[in-house]
C-alpha cells in the first residue's frame, strides 16, 4: 500500500456544531482504489466527516486535499450521493431529470444539458437497472429505486472518488446487492469509493478498507487487519462483540 497514491488526505480536521466538537482532530489518509466503509455509533460524526471533505460544512480547523490539491481545484474528481432522506421526493421531476443533474457540475453556469448529457444519463440509468423508469415521477419510485437514481446521478459525474452517505438505508435486498456490485466494479476500474455504513455484519463482505470513527478517529486501514473486536469495542463502547467471519 505504501507506494499507492493518496486519493483523499485529511489533516487535523475539527468540526463543531454550536461550538460543540463533533469531529476532533481527525487525520485520515485514504489510498487510491479502495472501497472504504466509515463506521461508528450514531452521532459519531460519520456524515459530518464526508460533508466537511466535500465542503458542505465548514470546519473550524484542519485541511483537506484531494490528490494532493485543495478540494476547490479538484471538484470534478469527486461525486457525492447524499442521504436519501435529505431531499423532497415529491419534487416535480422525473428520474431521468435527476440523473441529468449529475452533468450540471461539468457544464458550469448557465449552459444547458444537451444530447451528449442525456446519453450519459441514460447510460447511467441502464447501469443501475432503472432505464425502464426514466420518465417516472420520482415520488412514484420505491426507496430502493430512489437510491439507485441517486447512484446513477453520481455515476454520470464520472469522478475518481465517490462519497456515499448511507446508500443501503431503507433499500430492499435486491437493490443492496445491485449497489454493492456497482461499487465493486468502480473499485476494479481504479476508483476510490467511501461509504458511510451502518451494518457492521456486512463490512468484511462488502469492503476492503475501513475507518472507525467516534468523534475521534479510532482506527483506519485494511478490513482484514483492523476489523476486530478490539477496535469495535473502542468505537462503540464497552465490550462490543460482533462475530467476524474472515
Amino acid at each position: 500500500m505504501e507506494n499507492k497514491k493518496l486519493a483523499v488526505s485529511v489533516d487535523d480536521l475539527t468540526v463543531a456544531y454550536n461550538y460543540k466538537p463533533v469531529l476532533w482532530d481527525i487525520d485520515l489518509a485514504i489510498p487510491e482504489g479502495v472501497l472504504m466503509a466509515i463506521v461508528g455509533p450514531n452521532g459519531a460524526g460519520k456524515s459530518t466527516l464526508i460533508k466537511s471533505i466535500l465542503g458542505i460544512i465548514n470546519p473550524i480547523a484542519g485541511s483537506i486535499s484531494i490528490y494532493g490539491k485543495p478540494y476547490d481545484e479538484q471538484r470534478k474528481l469527486v461525486a457525492y450521493v447524499p442521504q436519501k432522506g435529505s431531499v423532497d421526493w415529491d419534487f416535480p421531476t422525473t428520474a431521468l431529470d435527476v440523473v441529468k443533474m449529475g452533468t450540471y457540475g461539468s457544464l458550469g453556469w448557465i449552459k444547458r444539458p444537451r444530447q451528449k448529457e442525456k446519453k450519459a444519463a441514460l447510460e447511467a440509468l441502464e447501469k443501475v437497472g432503472m432505464l425502464a423508469f426514466k420518465d417516472r415521477q420520482i415520488s412514484q419510485l420505491s426507496g430502493g429505486q430512489q437510491q439507485r437514481i441517486f447512484l446513477a446521478r453520481a455515476l454520470v459525474q464520472n469522478a475518481s472518488i465517490y462519497f456515499m452517505d448511507e446508500p443501503f438505508q431503507g433499500v430492499d435486498a435486491t437493490t443492496e446487492i445491485a449497489i454493492i456490485n456497482i461499487l465493486k466494479e468502480l473499485r476494479k476500474s481504479g476508483k476510490t469509493v467511501i461509504v458511510v455504513h451502518h451494518d457492521l455484519q456486512t463490512v468484511p463482505e462488502y469492503f476492503d478498507w475501513v475507518t472507525f470513527l467516534n468523534v475521534k478517529k479510532i482506527a483506519t486501514g485494511p478490513v482484514k487487519d483492523i476489523f476486530n473486536d478490539d477496535n469495535l469495542t473502542k468505537t462503540y463502547g464497552i465490550n462490543y462483540k460482533v462475530s467476524v467471519q474472515q
Binding site: 475539527t14 482532530d25 487525520d27
Partner: peptide
C-alpha cells in the same frame, strides 16, 4: 458567548492535537 466558545473550542482542538 459565541466568541468565547469559538476560542475555547479552538483551544480544545489545539490541546487535543498536542495530545495526539
Amino acid at each position: 458567548r459565541n466568541k468565547q466558545q469559538r476560542l475555547e473550542v479552538s483551544l480544545l482542538t489545539f490541546l487535543l492535537h498536542l495530545n495526539n
